[in-house]
Design a protein around this nucleic acid. Structure first.
Lengths: 164, 164
DNA sequence: CCAACTGATTGCATGTACCAACCATAACGG
DNA sequence: CCGTTATGGTTGGTACATGCAATCAGTTGG
């Protein structure tokens, strides 16, 4: 706890690591189910729905790449989504092995509702923040995510934390 | 997508909600297993180890409250930790139903190693950030966590995001 | 001493995720 | 044209994380 400080702004890094650990653990509770329709959108499904909505029809493999998840995980979640009538799996003309996933009208509606609820909670949580802090937090978060994405994409574990 | 903007800095809030969703999903991959000793500390266990280390002997119930998790979840994780020889469960003198959880020497060592690895990854991820951004991110993250904690503690779902 | 409460564990169900095995279609190279 | 290998997806099996309900043990207050 004394000889570790060496490279960067250690104190902030330590703090960030700590807060992130807690955040990831606790944020999962802000699950947001129900809605007017009592539709339940699983936490995982929400992300898929949102990404599909924001970027148009995609293949499973593209979703897997985006979330850095195994194809099988996506496959099951998409199956559930289709089961619930939120997305359709239409065969891809270019490649008959592939499927294009597309939001249904219903899916779009459910996403809109769920998203509004989640944003509501976030807005409520950040009620007292200044616009500058909000903007800063948004952009730092985005930057962090971008770095994380890169980290997960590029190297499996080349990072070399340090000690060894 | 047009009539939603009303209360606060909607754009930042939207962005934060989005990034948070992605972060929570992806951050779990930065799992960090193995170490020199090839000790594997589960994601969930790490948080317990760290909190125990930083705040001294605690009861299960106190851990549960800190993480906002069910007592049963903590119970199982602690059992695993004890199994692995990382913590001890000693009877509490004041109340013979309760147990005081304490890190073992081994537990302390494993925590130190694992924590160093995780901090290493975070440091690596934030390598190019300015000290100011690091400090800002740390404090915004802490503030967000505090708000989240409050949200989870106080009301189950009194928040009232808005639409309904 | 009994009732109500509280700390913790256990049984059961669900969600999320990985890996390995598999099936179908594609893309190549004879 | 076929094999062979590669790619898109699904399914089986497994592990971990978590919650709720039931249970047990010890505490507290009539």
């Amino acid at each position: 706890m004394q000889s570790v400080g060496s490279e960067t702004d250690l104190t902030s890094v330590e703090s960030i690591e700590q807060e992130l650990t807690l955040l990831v653990r606790r944020a999962q509770k802000v699950h947001l189910r129900g809605g007017p329709t009592e539709q339940v959108v699983e936490r995982a499904a929400y992300g898929i729905l949102a990404w599909l909505h924001d970027t148009g029809p995609l293949r499973s493999s593209e979703l897997a790449a985006h979330f850095h998840l195994d194809a099988s995980t996506i496959s099951r979640q998409v199956a559930a989504l289709e089961q619930a009538g939120l997305v359709t799996r239409e065969p891809d003309a270019d490649d008959r092995r592939a499927l294009r996933l597309r939001l249904t009208e219903h899916g779009r509606g459910v996403l809109t509702t769920t998203r509004a609820e989640r944003r509501g909670v976030v807005r409520e949580l950040l009620r007292s923040w200044s616009p500058e802090d909000l903007a800063r937090f948004a952009s730092l978060l985005a930057a962090f995510n971008a770095g994380l994405d890169e980290h997960l994409t590029g190297d499996p574990h080349t990072a070399e934390g340090g000690q060894r």
